[in-house]
């Protein structure tokens, strides 16, 4: 039998086209959401530990390096959310209409809902009551 040459994936495969790159950034955004979760848990931990611990943690989070890192993480998180909403319209296992809805329409409705809910949360935290 002839000798087969095994397939070997290149390390930079995800730079091959922009869709692979978008996917990798989306996956990285998933990791970032976990990091945000850990930061939030630590915030709760310092809150429980007392005022000085909480103030020290908040002050540390306000330092420029941490703010820049947070900006990058936040951008990745937004990318993760946006691309996730894009996927909803591309797979419609439950159809309420005879034909699948255009994915852009599903994406648009989801983004509007997302913005609405986010606005309500921001209002509850900073603006209301």
């Amino acid at each position: 039998m002839a000798r087969e040459y095994p397939w070997r994936r290149r390390a930079g495969w995800w730079l091959q086209n922009r869709r692979y790159l978008a996917f990798q950034l989306r996956e990285l955004g998933g990791v970032v959401s976990a990091i945000y979760g850990l930061i939030f848990l630590n915030l709760l931990r310092t809150l429980r530990a007392g005022e000085s611990a909480y103030t020290a943690f908040v002050d540390m989070m306000r330092t420029p390096p941490i703010l820049y890192v947070n900006l990058v993480l936040f951008a990745l998180l937004v990318w993760h959310a946006v691309t996730w909403f894009m996927l909803i319209g591309k797979s419609q296992p439950i159809q309420f209409t005879e034909r699948p809805l255009p994915w852009r329409a599903v994406f648009g409705v989801n983004v509007l809902l997302w913005i609405g809910v986010s606005g309500a949360v921001v209002y509850l935290i900073f603006g209301g009551f």
Binding site: R19, Y20, F23, E27, L87, K90, S91, Q92, P93, I94
Partner: peptide, 27 residues
Amino acid sequence: CTFVGECSVVCPKDVDPAAAIQTLKFL
């Protein structure tokens, strides 16, 4: 499947396997 979606992009017959897999996950 992590829903990269490239399978559906390159499909010459517009089968959309990525969507098929997500439907199978639901089923």
